[in-house]
């Protein structure tokens, strides 16, 4: 986890770990379904002008919180965390599962965010196609499927190809926790599409790649249509991880949007 500083806090009696880096206005990062990412190049880029704050969701690395039953529960818990930590209204970028978490938080209280950014978010049931069933793929297969062109993405190999047994075990923890929260309905909240219609005035940006094999385009279009004034930025030929696959364009767009 080079690059990250670790800070332990407590929320409602539960220990929560924050990974933090950089300085400037805080940018909340909500990690994906496999848990907190190692230090990545886009973190490096963003940390030059932002204080990155990435909480490890309960259960993704340590003991789970037993009463936590779904992403709505987690989003309310995170809302409490932000209030107690007195972050004020901050910018958020949520990746995949974390994108879903971010928008659930926004629905609970739009004022906790200044800008909402979702990268290929789960959360809405696609009208065409399905969100990939990660549980009948090995993590290796799932990771591989999340990138459009692994050959052209050297950072992907650095991050994932030489995973240690500890990392693999931590992915397994993450798979367990996401299954606890989102096994059924699978990775979506059936009423979310209606709730997001009330997000007037929250600047919202959605990233998606045309070669994303994890979340179908129809779900992204549904978000863009439902969230008033939101913007969908599509990367041609990119997979599920534009922050790695199209890092420069991603960082540029993200920075322009939130600054």
């Amino acid at each position: 986890m080079a690059g990250w500083e670790k800070r332990e806090i407590e929320v409602g009696g539960a220990p929560i770990t924050l990974f933090e880096a950089g300085s400037g206005r805080p940018l909340l990062i909500l990690h994906d379904e496999l848990g907190p990412a190692d230090w990545q190049l886009w973190h490096e880029d963003m940390s030059k002008h932002r204080r990155l704050v990435m909480p490890i969701a309960p259960g993704f690395r340590d003991e789970r919180i037993k009463w936590m039953r779904n992403v709505t529960d987690l989003s309310r818990f995170y809302g409490r965390m932000l209030r107690e930590q007195k972050f004020g209204s901050l910018d958020v970028v949520g990746l995949s599962f974390g994108g879903w978490l971010a928008v659930e938080m926004a629905v609970n209280d739009p004022t906790q965010f200044a800008h909402l950014v979702m990268v290929a978010p789960f959360g809405i049931k696609p009208s065409q196609g399905y969100i990939t069933d990660m549980y009948i793929l090995t993590t290796a297969e799932y990771l591989k499927s999340s990138i459009a062109d692994p050959e052209a993405t050297p950072e992907f190999a650095t991050l994932f190809n030489s995973a240690t047994p500890q990392t693999i075990e931590s992915w397994e923890d993450a798979r367990i926790e996401t299954a606890q929260l989102a096994w059924e309905p699978f990775m979506h909240n059936p009423s979310l599409e209606q709730h997001v219609r009330g997000l007037n005035g929250l600047p919202t940006l959605i990233f998606w790649g045309t070669k994303d094999s994890v979340v179908p385009e129809s779900a992204m279009r549904a978000y863009a249509e439902a969230i008033p004034g939101s913007k969908l930025e599509v990367f041609e030929g990119c997979g599920h991880r534009p922050e790695i696959e199209r890092r420069h364009e991603f960082v540029k767009s993200l920075t322009r949007f939130i600054d």
Binding site: I136, L137, T138, R175, A179
Partner: peptide
């Protein structure tokens, strides 16, 4: 196959 036997949790 392992993928159907190694379900999370």
């Amino acid at each position: 196959t392992p993928k159907y036997s190694a379900l999370p949790g």
